[in-house]
Structure formats: structure tokens, C-alpha cells
């Protein structure tokens, strides 16, 4: 493995090699992992040169599409740190490390997160104890915002360091199985932008630079991702990828079909996404797809909604059985 001396070098590596990883979603995500590993390694060396070795073992985790191993060509940053120390200086150190991660990843081509879900933010960079307290508070509070935070956190995947995540996540399942909790969670994720109209036509963007395109993230990915996440919570699973989450489930009909549809969806995004930057990567120009592919995509979108509604029913049934 090459040792890079600057983020710019890693960026050129990305620009040279990304076309080779373009063909398949799994290959692309391996490539992203490789790039991020190099970036993180360089950031750690930089911070260790400046501030010395870390004060304690820690876990650097990825969330969002990187956490779920579902990144497109361009991806933004969503990450955090768990460190095993209660010293106040520790937070200072790991926030500095987080800041270096953000800068490095940004130089390599990962857009800075608009919502500041990053290890440089004290909300996402905490000790094991701090995380315990914070996640419990999110779940006890159950406000719209705290549930959003929790759902973001639940997609976390340990990327570097010691895996404090699995035990942390496992410890929260009892809180999640309180009455009506899952209903509350799924209600927070039911708002999906419509991709197919009542007449079976695509609902395309009518204005702006993406006129004639469909936003796959909002219309197609969200239902699958959100449904699979809720099912994973229900089944006490800490897996993060949507496909793996769906694979573990035995109680939904057409499981294989939903998995195939989601994989196809990722391939369509890869083949037909605009890819000029992070935002454009969510859009697909419909008239570049063949008639058959368009038909296929419509069914994928409809199936996603069906899956989400199905999960909602399952969760509602659970609730009524408790009552």
C-alpha cells in the first residue's frame, strides 16, 4: 500500500483510478474505503506529529451512505469519534483530530457535511460515557430532531480503531422496544418525495439545472434505506448496509425481490447519474435510459414505497400486540 505524503496526492490517485471502480457499486465502495483509509492515516500522522499520540483508544466511524456502504461517485462527509477516556483534554485532542479528518477528506473530494455531522463537532465526538448518555437522551427525548440524530447514528460503521460501536448500539435495543417507539421512528421517515405520478409517469424536475431529471436519492433510495433501517432496529441487528439489513429478515414477503431492486437501483445511479458533483450525483436524466430501463426504474420506485408501507404495517402490528 502506498504511503501518501499529502492529501493532494490522494486526490490525484482518486482522479486517476475512480473510472476503474465505476462499473460496480461494491467495487466503488471498496475504492472509497481505500481512499478514506489513506486520508485518515495521513490525518492521524499529521495530528500525532503536532499533538503527540492519542490519549486513549478510539473508534472513528462513518455514517450516511459511507456507513451503509452505498456511496455514489461523489459523497459527502458524515462521521464521528468515540474515545475511551473521561479526561477533558481527550476531547480537545479528538476534536483536533476530527478537524484534520474533515480538512483531509474535503481535499480528497468528500464534500463537507451541511448539517455538520462530523467528528470536528462536539455533538459527534464524545467519550464512550458521553455517547451512552447522549444516545439515551435522544431516545428518551424522542423529539423529531433527536430521532433524526439517532437514525443517523444507527447507520454508523466502525472504520478505524477499536469497535466501541457494536456494544453501544446493542445496549440501546431495550430502549428502542418501548411501546410505540418504532412507530414514532417510522413516522419520522415516511415523507418521501414522489417519483411516479398517479398516471404512472415520472415526476421529473421541472425547473433548475436538473430539469428533466429525477432525484433518485429522495424518490427511490430513501424508502429502501429507511425501511431497512427500521427493520434492523426491530430485529436487533447492528448491520449497516441496506442489502445486509434486508437479507437478515425472515418476516417480510418478497425479501429477495426488494434486495434485487435495491441493487439494481444502485447500478442505475452509477450508470446514469450526472456525477459532475455531489448534488448532481443524485440525479438521473431519464431520457438517457431505454424504455425498458425506465419501466424498470418505475417499478423499483413503487416497490420501495410498498416496502416502506409494509414495514409500517409490521411495526403497527407490533404496537397493537403490546397494547
Amino acid at each position: 500500500m502506498a504511503i501518501y505524503k499529502s492529501y493532494t496526492q490522494i486526490r490525484s490517485f482518486r482522479d486517476q483510478k475512480i473510472s476503474q471502480a465505476w462499473s460496480h457499486s461494491a467495487l466503488l465502495n471498496d475504492f472509497h474505503d481505500e481512499l478514506m483509509k489513506q486520508t485518515i492515516a495521513l490525518a492521524i500522522r499529521t495530528v500525532e506529529d503536532r499533538l503527540g499520540p492519542p490519549r486513549s483508544p478510539y473508534c472513528f466511524f462513518l455514517m450516511g451512505s459511507a456507513g451503509r456502504l452505498e456511496q455514489g461517485i461523489w459523497s459527502d462527509q458524515d462521521h464521528g469519534i468515540i474515545y475511551d477516556s473521561t479526561e477533558p483534554e481527550a476531547q480537545e485532542y479528538f476534536l483536533a483530530l476530527g478537524k484534520e479528518f474533515v480538512e483531509g477528506l474535503a481535499e480528497v473530494g468528500y464534500k463537507v457535511c451541511d448539517g455538520n455531522v462530523m467528528a470536528s463537532n462536539p455533538l459527534w465526538c464524545k467519550s464512550t460515557e458521553g455517547w451512552n448518555k447522549q444516545v439515551s437522551n435522544w431516545l428518551l427525548d424522542s423529539s423529531w430532531e433527536s430521532i433524526r440524530h439517532f437514525l443517523t447514528f444507527f447507520d454508523a460503521r466502525c472504520f478505524y480503531g477499536k469497535d466501541y460501536l457494536t456494544s453501544l448500539k446493542n445496549s440501546f435495543f431495550p430502549l428502542l422496544h418501548r411501546s410505540c417507539m418504532l412507530t414514532r421512528i417510522i413516522e419520522n421517515t415516511m415523507h418521501i418525495k414522489k417519483g411516479v405520478g398517479v398516471l404512472g409517469q415520472f415526476l421529473l424536475e421541472t425547473h433548475g439545472p436538473f430539469t428533466g431529471c429525477i432525484n433518485l436519492k429522495d424518490t427511490a433510495f430513501f424508502p429502501y434505506v429507511n425501511a431497512a433501517r427500521v427493520l434492523a432496529i426491530r430485529n436487533n441487528s447492528v448491520k449497516t448496509s441496506t442489502v445486509e439489513r434486508l437479507q437478515q429478515l425472515t418476516d417480510i414477503d418478497n425479501r429477495e425481490r426488494f434486495i434485487t431492486q435495491f441493487i439494481k437501483l444502485q447500478d442505475y445511479r452509477l450508470s446514469y447519474g450526472l456525477h459532475s458533483d455531489y448534488e448532481a450525483g443524485h440525479y438521473v436524466k431519464i431520457n438517457q435510459m431505454s424504455k425498458q430501463q425506465q419501466k424498470d426504474l418505475k417499478i423499483i420506485i413503487k416497490d420501495g414505497i410498498q416496502l416502506l408501507n409494509h414495514v409500517k404495517e409490521i411495526v403497527a402490528k407490533d404496537d397493537s400486540s403490546w397494547a
Binding site: 421541472t206 425547473h207 430539469t211
Partner: peptide
């Protein structure tokens, strides 16, 4: 209008 002819709101 954008350069590609698409309209903005």
C-alpha cells in the same frame, strides 16, 4: 433560464 435552456423558478 440556464445556459442549457432549462428554466429556474
Amino acid at each position: 433560464y440556464n445556459k442549457d435552456g432549462s428554466a429556474n423558478n
